[in-house]
Amino acid sequence: MELLAADLHIHSVLSPCGELSMSPRAIVARAVEVGIQVVALTDHNSARNAPALAAAAQAAGLCALFGLEVRSAEEVDVLTLFDTPADALAYGDWVHAALPSVPCDPALFGDQVVVDGEDEILGFEPHLLINAIEQPLDAVCAEARRRGALVLLAHVDRPANSVLSQLGFMPDDLPVDGVELSRFGDEDRLRAEHPALGGLPVVRFSDAHRPGEIGYQQTQFEVAAAGVTEFRAALEGRGGRRAVPVRRALA
């Protein structure tokens, strides 16, 4: 077993709200600098920068997962994390098929840039990625799970785009592996207010949109190796594996 510091909620230049400095290569460099051992990209409704992350992570010898932060029809954000870029891209195709064809005005929302592992611009995503897709929350989770993803409800303590802000309650039959807290969230208070969370584990990740935010929230996984199966076992506390959410001061 080893203890791996993971930050699995990071936005690249593909997210309209992500800073232009957030290329996969820059994300990997910053992660290494702050002692993160596993990173994941979770751009809104798209995995098109997953291949760039794979290349940049491999060049730096860093472990990576490949994800999307999907916005369901109810405007609930869901983190879906896959072992390979191909799996993330295939699920991304399913997501894209349900994304409305609303154009992204970069002046209002920001640029949506597709890059390679060496910061070269490959193109721009034309459709507004922060829109909600035309698939309900349960289908977003179930389809990701069916395709092998680790599924986490994003920043559940936030007043917008979280399961609790949009539905007002925690459904008891969602196929998810855990819930993420933002830096404002307190686990004891959350569990007291929402007993329906039951035994669902809590994780913390940065939701970084700027390099300086990477790793300031993280989850440390005691596992045999990085990957969806091991991380799920750690969240469930099986086989001597465990997951510990950590919140640090923002640099």
Binding site: R71, A73, E75, P100, N131, A132
Partner: peptide, 8 residues
Amino acid sequence: DLLSDVLA
């Protein structure tokens, strides 16, 4: 209160 609804 759904931004996607207003976009549509």
